[in-house]
Design a protein around this nucleic acid. Structure first.
Lengths: 345, 345
DNA sequence: TAGGACTTCGTAAACGTTTCGGAGAAAAAT
DNA sequence: ATTTTTCTCCGAAACGTTTACGAAGTCCTA
C-alpha cells in the first residue's frame, strides 16, 4: 500500500477525503484536514507526479531549452544561469518548477523539442537563441503548448517574446563613438544565423545612416561567438587597407580575443582604437582597459520571461491578464575605458 | 478518444496489441506490427509519459542538478554545458533523456533536491558541486534513487562519484614551479565549503611537504570563485610583507581579476610573478600572457559521468556491470606563458 | 414533525499506459 | 483423431491521483 491510499488507511478515512484535504478543497472538516496534513507531513507523503498529471492533464513544470555543448555557448559565462534563476523565482510563486532541457549538439533542436513536448513533461516552454526562421516556434504553436521565446524571430504568426534592446544599444554605442569623432566604425557579429545577429546588424546600419555615415561592408566581420571569434575579428580588421578607429562587438567575450590580437599588433584598445562590447560580463571590468558595455539584470529578465509565459497560459490568465507579451528589454551603459580613444577634429 | 486507444480503434485492434507492437514485444504478428507502426507514425502518436510512468514506476529521464544564479556559478556556463553534452550522449544510447534541475539561489539545495526526487520525475540523479558534508548524498541514498556525484565528498557511506584530479594538478603545478626555483608559492582557493577546495588545499600542502617547503598560512587566500575573487587574491598577496613569487589558482576565471590587479600594481604576470590556473577555459589562451593551466574534455567527462550512473542503476546492471564507480579524472598540462618567471639560483 | 439547506464524507470513474492470464485457432506431434 | 504446442490476440487489472455524484448526518425553518 503506497501513496495516498496508505495515508487514508492509516487515518481510517477515504482517499477522496485525504485528497481534498491536501488540496485545500472546501468540503472537508477543518479538524480532519489538520489530521491529514499532520499525518502527511509525518510520513513524508508527497503526491506522485505521474498519477497527478495523468489525472490532471498537466504537470506543474515548465521547460527551458538551451543548447548544450561548451563551444556553442554563445552567451558565455553565466548568462543562462542568471536568467534561469529569475525564471525560477517567477514560477516558484505558483508552485511551478523549472526544468532545463538541454538540446545536445548532436541533435536537431526542432526534433529534440518535438520529443520533449511529446513527452508531456511540461506545461509550457521557454526557448532561447531564436533563429531567423525558427521551426521550434511553429512547432510549439501547432502543439498549442504555451511558450515564450527569449529573442524575437522572423517566424510568422503571433507569439510572445522578450528580447534585448539591440537597437537601443547599438544606437547609443554609435552615438557615443560618433560624438568622439569616429566615422569608421566596425562591427563584430555572430557567424551563425541566430536572430540577434540580424537585429544588431540592422540597428548598426540604421544608426550609421542616421549620422550620415556611408555603410562599408568591409567593416562588418562575422565570426564565432567566442574569444576565438573576437581574435579573428581583430585579425581581419587589422588587415584592412584603411583600419577602423572603433569597433562594437555583439558578445563581450569577443573582447578578450580582440584585445589579445590587438595587443599582439601593438594596437592598444582604448588608446589606438575604441572598443565597445555588448553585454556586461563578469570579466568586463577586469579587462585592461575595462570594457565599455551594457548592463542588464539577468535575474529581472528571467522573472519577466517567466511572467510573460504565465500570461500566455490559460490557467493563469486571471492572475496575469496581459495576454500575449512582447517586450524589448532595456540595458544601461556601463562606461569603461575601452572607448576612450578620441579622434581629433 | 485519445492516445493509444484512438490508434487501436482506428486499426480495429485491441489496445494491448498496439502497445505490444509499439514496444517490440514478441507475441505480435509482424504484419500487424508493421500496420501499427505505420499508423502510429502517420498520426504522430507518442506515448503519454504520465500514463507510462504511472504504470511502469519509472520515467525515462535523469536529473542533473546545478545551482542557478550567475554569481554562484564558480565554473561558469561552459563547464556545465560541456559536461551536460557528454552526459546526454551517454544517455541517448539508451533512450534516456536528461533534464537539468537548477536549484535557485533562494532555496536550500537539499530541500530542492528532496522536492525533485519526490516529484518522481527522474529515475536517477547527477549532483554537482559537492560539499564537504553533503546532505544531498544522504538524501539520495535514503531515497534509494540511483545517483552519482560530480565531485567527491566527505559524506560517509559508499556512493559513486567522479572527480577531477586535483592532487595531480597541484602536484604537477608545484613541481613545475619548484623546478623554476620558486619556494614561496601562494594558492587561491574558494571561500565557500565546496569540497574541491579542501581537496586542492590538501594537495597543495602535500606537494609543498614533498619538496621540503614549509607551509605558510599567509600564502593561502580564500576568495569568491570569480574574477572578483582573483582580483582580491592578488590584492591580498600584494600586501604581504614578503610577496610570493608564484601563485596557483583553483578557478581559471580568477586569473582575469588577478591579472588586472597585478597590472595595476605594475607587477607583470609571467615576468614578475608566475601564475598557474586550474582548468583551461575558453579565455585562457587569449589572456596576456596566456595562462598555464590544465585541460580536460568536458564532453568525455560527461560521458563517463552518465555511464557511471547507468552502472549504478539496477535496470542497466547487465550492460554496465561495473557497479559502484569512483573515478579520478585526469587533466593535461597546457603550458602558457604565465609561469615563465624563473627564480635565478 | 416534515422538509429543506448545509456540512462532511465515501464511492467510483477517469486519465493512458503496460502486462498478466487466457482464449481461440492453427500447426504440429502423437 | 486426439493431444500438445505455437502463434496471435483480447480482456481486464493495475499504477496514484482528482473529482463528480450522491449519501448520510446535522441544523434550521416552517
Amino acid at each position: 500500500m503506497k501513496g495516498i491510499r496508505r495515508l487514508a488507511q492509516q487515518l481510517d478515512i477515504s482517499i477522496g477525503t485525504v485528497s481534498r484535504a491536501l488540496n485545500g478543497k472546501p468540503d472537508v472538516n477543518e479538524q480532519t484536514r489538520a489530521r491529514v496534513l499532520e499525518a502527511a507531513a509525518a510520513m513524508g507523503y508527497v503526491p506522485n507526479q505521474a498519477g497527478r498529471s495523468l489525472r490532471e492533464g498537466s504537470t506543474k513544470a515548465i521547460g527551458f531549452t538551451i543548447e548544450s555543448g561548451a563551444d556553442t555557448a554563445g552567451n558565455g559565462d553565466n548568462f543562462f544561469l542568471g536568467v534561469i534563476d529569475g525564471v525560477q523565482t517567477a514560477f516558484s510563486r505558483h508552485n511551478l518548477d523549472l526544468v532545463v532541457l538541454p538540446c545536445s549538439t548532436e541533435e536537431d533542436p526542432s526534433q529534440y523539442l518535438r520529443r520533449m513536448v511529446a513527452r508531456g513533461m511540461v506545461d509550457g516552454m521557454i526557448i532561447s537563441a531564436t533563429h531567423r526562421r525558427d521551426a521550434r516556434i511553429e512547432l510549439l504553436a501547432n502543439a498549442r503548448l504555451p511558450f515564450v521565446a527569449l529573442g524575437r524571430s522572423g517566424t510568422p504568426g503571433p507569439h510572445p517574446w522578450i528580447d534585448l534592446d539591440f537597437e537601443g544599444v547599438v544606437n547609443l554605442g554609435i552615438d557615443r563613438l560618433v560624438a568622439k569623432g569616429h566615422r569608421r566604425i566596425a562591427v563584430g557579429l555572430p557567424s551563425n544565423d541566430i536572430n540577434l545577429g540580424f537585429v544588431f546588424f540592422d540597428g548598426y546600419k540604421a544608426a550609421l545612416a542616421r549620422h550620415g555615415i556611408p555603410y562599408d561592408p568591409t567593416l562588418v566581420i562575422r565570426a564565432g561567438s567566442s574569444e576565438q571569434g573576437g581574435y579573428q575579428i581583430a585579425h581581419e580588421l587589422l588587415m584592412l587597407p584603411e583600419r577602423p578607429t572603433a569597433v562594437i562587438l555583439i558578445y563581450e567575450m569577443m573582447a578578450i580575443g580582440l584585445y589579445r590580437r590587438l595587443n599582439e599588433a601593438g594596437v592598444r584598445p582604448g588608446r589606438d582604437i575604441a572598443v565597445i562590447g555588448f553585454r556586461e560580463g563578469p570579466q568586463s571590468r577586469f579587462l585592461s582597459p575595462p570594457l565599455t558595455c551594457f548592463r542588464l539584470s539577468l535575474r529581472d529578465l528571467g522573472v519577466a520571461l517567466g511572467e510573460s509565459l504565465l500570461a500566455s497560459m490559460p490557467a493563469y490568465a486571471d492572475i496575469y491578464p496581459q495576454g500575449l507579451v512582447r517586450r524589448i528589454w532595456p540595458l544601461q551603459l556601463v562606461p569603461g575605458e575601452s572607448d576612450d580613444f578620441t579622434i581629433p577634429r
